[in-house]
Design a protein around this nucleic acid. Structure first.
Length: 716
DNA sequence: TTTGCTTATCTTTTT
DNA sequence: GATAAGCAAA
């Protein structure tokens, strides 16, 4: 094991946190202050002190965060740290619950419900209870889902909850109560757990079974928790219970970066931590290593307006830097073009694509930018927004797999049976009420007696399931299931079934990493992939929702659509607390930049139904003193080219828009000269169009007119 | 009862 | 642009 010089690698505060011998530690760390570094070194320090890696538990917000940290710790120590138990609260709880499921009356292979599943079940139950027909204004399934979750997390009864958070739904209290109750029974009867159940049941198990508590306490001698501001009270309690007997807990968080209150997270957990662990050590990290002073002045100004006082004022450790740029665009298209142009500049300056990110409030805000980037052949990766597993065909396929694991999962049965022609909700319910009562629903379905036209299909399904559940080979199972569902996909999605079939095939490729179906399905539910893994390698710029950008950093960051109606989200502007969270969200976004930070906002946005409306700059932008920003001067209106190549679909507009100040066209090119462009590759100069524009015929993409202020053409 | 067609309604953010 | 809901027809 190599020697690590902790003193040299860490600042005094970090060092103190890392080398705390035993007992509870709370690290309050500002953005970019090296909290990940602190955790990584803590893991390294503990292992170097002789602690076995598998007696460390590292809980993070995403699974990826945990694995990156462990990779770094491995590098540091020169030994394999993968034996450290790392993951999310939900993932860890799930593993523990599977082991002890019988104790709470569940089979070990219970199904995990995602948000959409929950909503479907709630909707079904509303229909069953006759609540939707009677009153059209009964809350929708999505609202009921939020209520169910808050009820599970907030320790309030329905009346209090409705009074406090949904006063307008008070008249439906009785109906809501009935649905929620039915929902709990439904989950229990069909071996289902939602995200909240994973945590709550694990907490309950720890609470009621001292032997489990003791077992966990002696197995994991040190518990480290990242992003503590985004944990909820249940998670805080779980930490408290799991640390019984040793209190070796280190939690790291930043109350100013709490952005998951909408989901039950409670940043007051940080303030309450010292009360849960009375003799805890509190350490503040306020040195910022990520960015430069001008950026920091700006982000400090953003959070200074927060209603709660966040007293950490960060100090930059890096010299130099320039003020963030503010760009006021005409509309969203103009904004997209500006960003694209700037990105091209950075790329031609040699900035790596993976060091550039565009951040926005909601998934659909990047729509214009995506088309613009596509036109310019700039590859990007989108994070956040709609996930692969949320599309209908994938859910159908996963339902088929889920009934194989959990034959009591009525919800999945419904989805699958509805695929069959001439089977609708009524028919499905009739079948299911009959077969789910029996010992073996699959066998019952096989021998289900009826003259209905769908009979051959259901029998075929039952036989397939009967065959497949005996099959050990996962890839074989996937292949057979795929074959069964293929005709349904082909006939249901006439216009784009090839794409959907391909995605199902890709799912099979993902499953090949697993030995058993149950853990594959659990991982899909707990850590849904963003999309299909791209086969083509190569670095890409990142488009991401602010939420998905949490904990990451890039050299160049654009925060776009900073206008009223987009950011803050219009749904949040009625409620003071929610506006506060939006502000913290803006703070998180702007603290992701290492060097270059851009704020953009359009003056017109397109509404859902079509048509554009004028909007003002985001209230958060107006809170930043103008002296801290550099407004971008647009020299003249952008003018689009309408040359011949436009008809061929080649990019035309990327070269219009405002030019960067100080960029000059200095190198005149001569026709026939060979040049190289960082994106388009080699080409031949056709002619100089104006002083600043040159027309080049590229070997790869044909004719382009380039603005010399942007395009870094080199002579070859 | 199921299906197929049309129209409306949205679209925060996510383990 | 995708899905839910509404309505008429088989």
């Amino acid at each position: 094991m190599p020697h690590i010089d902790f003193e040299k690698s860490l600042n005094p505060e970090q060092l103190e946190a890392v080398t705390t011998p035993d007992g509870p530690v709370l690290v309050v760390a500002g953005a970019g202050s090296g909290k990940t570094r602190t955790l990584v070194y803590r893991v390294a320090w503990l292992i170097q002190k002789g602690l076995s890696p598998n007696s460390i538990l590292l809980l993070t917000f995403t699974r990826k965060a945990a694995s990156t940290m462990l990779e770094r710790a491995s590098e540091l120590l020169g030994i394999d740290c993968q034996r450290v138990c790392g993951g999310t609260f939900h993932g860890f709880s799930h593993r523990m619950l599977r082991r002890h499921a019988r104790l709470i009356g569940y089979p070990p292979n219970f199904t995990i419900l995602d948000r959409a599943d929950v909503q479907h079940i709630l909707k079904f139950l509303c229909q069953e209870l006759g609540l939707t027909g009677k009153d059209k204004r009964f809350p929708k399934a999505s609202t009921l889902g939020v209520i169910a979750s808050k009820l599970a997390n907030l320790d309030l009864d329905i009346e209090q909850l409705l009074y406090r958070h949904f006063p307008h739904l008070g008249i439906h209290a009785e109906g809501i109560y009935k649905v929620i109750e039915a929902y709990h029974i439904y989950k229990k009867n069909h071996a289902l757990m939602d995200y909240d159940d994973l945590l709550i049941n694990w907490k309950r198990l720890l609470k009621t079974h001292p032997e489990i508590r003791q077992d966990v306490g002696s197995r994991f001698r040190h518990i480290l928790v990242d992003e503590y501001q985004d944990t909820n009270s249940t998670q805080a309690e779980i930490v408290r219970l799991m640390a019984c007997g040793h209190d070796n807990v280190m939690v790291v968080g930043d109350d100013a970066q709490s952005i998951y209150a909408f989901r039950g997270a409670n940043f007051k957990n940080i303030l309450e931590f010292p009360r849960l662990f009375p003799n805890c050590k509190v350490i503040k990290l306020i040195r910022n290593y990520r960015t430069t002073q001008p950026n920091l002045d700006c982000t400090n100004a953003i959070i200074a307006h927060a209603r709660e006082k966040f007293t950490k004022r960060l100090v930059a450790q890096r010299a130099g830097g320039e003020k963030p740029i503010l760009y006021r665009a005409n509309d969203e298209l103009d904004q997209a073009r500006f960003v694209t142009t700037q990105i091209r500049n950075f790329l031609s300056d040699g900035v790596s694509p993976s060091q550039i990110a565009v951040l926005f409030r909601a998934g659909f805000h990047s729509y214009h930018l995506e088309t613009e980037l596509n036109r310019c052949f700039i590859p990007f990766e989108k994070r956040g927004g709609l996930k692969l597993v949320e599309s209908a065909h994938i859910k159908d396929f996963l339902s088929l797999l889920r009934i194989l694991i959990n034959p009591y999962d009525r919800f999945s049965w419904t989805r699958v049976l509805l695929l069959i022609e001439r089977l609708g909700t009524k028919g499905v319910n009739k079948i299911l009420t009959n077969i789910l009562m029996t010992e073996d629903p699959v066998l019952s379905l096989e021998s289900y007696k009826t003259k209905a036209s769908w009979r051959p299909k259901t029998k075929e399904l039952a036989l397939l399931l009967k065959r497949m559940r005996k099959c050990e080979d996962l890839s074989n199972v996937m292949k057979n299931m795929e074959a069964w569902i293929e005709p349904f996909i082909t006939s249901n999605y006439v216009d784009d079934y090839p794409r959907r079939l391909l995605e199902i095939q890709q799912l099979r490729a993902m499953a090949s990493q697993y030995d058993d179906l149950a853990s594959f399905l659990a991982d899909l539910a707990l850590d849904p992939p963003e999309g299909i893994e791209d086969t083509q390698q190569g670095e890409k710029i990142v488009l991401s929702t602010v939420h998905s950008a949490k904990g990451l950093e890039w050299q160049v960051v654009f925060v776009i659509s900073l206008c009223e109606g987009r950011f803050p989200s219009p749904n949040a502007t009625l409620n003071g607390d929610e506006v506060e969270e939006e502000r913290r969200l803006f703070y998180v976004a702007s603290t992701r930049a290492k060097d270059h930070l851009f704020f953009c906002y359009p003056q017109y946005i397109t509404q859902a139904g079509g048509g554009s409306i004028p909007v003002s700059a985001s209230r958060f932008l107006n809170e930043i003193p103008t002296s801290l920003l550099r407004p971008w001067k647009r020299p003249h209106l952008a003018k689009r080219h309408s040359g011949s190549f436009a008809a061929r679909g080649a990019p035309t507009s990327a070269f219009s828009g405002p030019s960067s100040p100080g960029s000059k066209a200095d190198l005149p090119f001569n026709p026939g000269q060979r040049v190289r462009h960082p994106i388009f590759g080699p080409g031949t100069v056709v002619q100089m169009v104006t002083d600043e524009k040159v027309k080049v015929c590229f070997d790869s993409v044909g004719d382009k007119t380039l603005h010399l202020g942007y395009a870094k053409l080199s002579v070859i």
